[in-house]
Amino acid sequence: MRVAILVTCVNDAMFPDAGKATVRLLRRLGIDVDFPAAQTCCAQPMVNTGYLDEAVPVVRTFVDAFAGYDAVVTPSGSCAASARHQHALVAERAGDAALADAVAETAPRVRELSEFLVDDLGVTDVGAYYPHRVTYHPSCHTLRLLGVGDRPTRLLQAVRGITLVDLPGARECCGFGGTFAVKNSDVSVAMGSDKARHVRETDAEVLVAGDNSCLMHIGGLLSRQRSGVRVAHLAEVLAATEADR
C-alpha cells in the first residue's frame, strides 16, 4: 500500500510536530509513509471564503501531488473534508473535465488519521503511553462532515497512562471557522471563551483535537487566560511512547 501524508499548510508552517508525530506513529505501525514534496494546501481557506477561482490552481497542485497513492493520510479532519467534499466543486468551477476526473480519483483516498487507523489498519491500541489528564474536543468537520464518531476517543481510551475526561458541550463549535475567526472575531472569541470555560471545568492538563486550526484558536484563548492548559494534536498523543520520556 502506497501511503502519503497530507501534512496540511497549517501543520507544515505552524505545527510541524503534528506532522512528525503522524509519520512516527504510522512507521511504528509498519506503514512506510511518504511526503510528496509538491503538496501545499487543500484550498479550503479560499473555498470557504468564496474565492473559487483562487482555489483552482491549489486543487490542481493537490491532485498532482497525490496522484498514484492508495491512501492520503492527514492529521486534519477539516482538510480531509475539504478534499472529499469541496474539490469536486472547484473542478466544476474550473470547467475542466480532466481536473474533475483527477479529483474523483484522489478525493475518496484522503483519510483523516483516526479513520485510517481504525478503519483501514483496524487498530485502536497503537501502543501509546501518555500519562496526563486529557479532554478531547471533537472538531465540527470530523464530527459532522466526516462522521468519524467515536474513533478518536476509542484510540485515546487505549492509550496507557492517560486519564480521559469528558468535555461538557463537546459537540458545540469552538468558533474558529477559518476566516470567520478574523472576519467575525468578536463572535468567534465569544464562542471560544465558552469552549475554553468547558475545558477548564474538566481540570484537564491537555486539550486534544484532530485539527490544529481549532486548537490554535482554543489554545490561544487558554493561553491568554494563563489557564495552565496546553493543547496537543491527537497524533502527538498517539505517537508518544514511554521511550520518549
Binding site: F15, P16, S185, L221, S223
Partner: peptide, 16 residues
C-alpha cells in the same frame, strides 16, 4: 487574532 488570543511564533523549521 491577537487582540483576544495568543498565537505561537512560527517554528524555526517547517515540516517540509
Amino acid at each position: 487574532w491577537t487582540g483576544a488570543r495568543d498565537l505561537p511564533a512560527p517554528p524555526r523549521e517547517s515540516f517540509r
